[in-house]
């Protein structure tokens, strides 16, 4: 079977905040139609890495590509076009507290599709229904538990009908049932052929869903390859991470 074409590429990306270097010469490819997990200890720059893909951060050096677009050189207007194809869902549910759940989703639909508010609202409600979230449509985000807030964030992102979806720690802080529900939606997207990039520490999710795993450590990509290889790699750092050993380089 031939290797899938990469939908996004980072080439030699450096990123520092002040004197603190987070990424040093990071190179990786995101294969189209696959589910890639980015794992690594806390603070290794996983979120920083993926934020480059949607232009939320610009590299100090290196190149960021999404298909044939040079992302690090796009202006805000061009980034809007990119962000309709490649949607990023934050770690914390970034819902707008002053709006209901349906209005949160409708706002995105209205701007994305350029439809009137009433049409956007009915499309938003249809999106919520598809995800089994109709009961939450009129609730305000602060009234919801974090699991449901994350599901609504996912619904909002999916209303954009993205070809690539980036999920930043979608199951962190959730109870096992809510985490399983999120994973079920991710599996469904995977089956639909959506390219997925998931930042996660959740080894169960990685086992359930990952086609590829990228492991970040010490500002660089330590491992990129198949899921099986990730769990069986003969690398003390990966071994410590995978088996949650207290002593080691992490």
């Amino acid at each position: 079977m031939s290797e899938p074409t990469p939908v996004a590429r980072l080439i030699g990306v450096d990123k520092s905040f002040g004197s603190h270097t987070v990424l040093a010469a990071v190179t990786l490819e995101l294969p189209a139609g696959r589910c890639t997990f980015v794992a690594g200890p806390s603070g290794t720059g996983k979120s920083v890495l993926v934020r480059h893909l949607v232009g939320l951060l610009r590299p100090d050096a290196g190149e960021v590509w999404y298909r044939d677009l040079r992302v690090d050189q796009l202006d805000e207007q061009a980034l809007l076009v990119l962000r309709r194809k490649c949607v990023y869902v934050f770690q914390h549910p970034t819902l707008f507290d002053s709006m209901s759940v349906a209005e949160n989703v409708a706002l995105v639909v209205k701007y994305h599709k350029g439809v009137k508010a009433r049409v956007a609202e009915s499309l938003a409600r249809a999106q919520l229904e598809r995800m089994g979230l109709s009961r939450l449509a009129d609730a305000r985000p602060p009234e919801l538990p974090s699991g449901e807030q994350k599901l609504v964030s996912l619904a909002r992102a999916l209303a954009l009908e993205p070809e690539t979806l980036i999920l930043d720690e979608p199951t962190t802080g959730l109870d096992p049932y809510a985490a399983f529900e999120i994973d079920a939606h991710v599996r469904q997207l995977k089956e639909q052929g959506v390219t997925l990039l998931v930042i996660s520490h959740d080894l169960q999710s990685i086992r359930r869903l990952a086609d590829e795993v990228v492991f970040l450590f010490d500002r660089q990509v330590r491992y990129q390859g198949g899921m099986q290889g990730f769990f069986e790699a003969n690398d003390p750092v990966l071994d410590q991470f995978v088996h949650a050993r207290v002593h080691g380089a992490i």
Binding site: L56, L80, R83, V87, F90, L95, F96, L107, V108, H112
Partner: peptide
């Protein structure tokens, strides 16, 4: 508050100015 909780970035990512 919206800025520090990434809500402003979320708006940009959802094509909302």
């Amino acid at each position: 508050s919206m800025q520090v909780s990434d809500q402003i970035d979320a708006m940009k990512l959802c094509s909302v100015d």
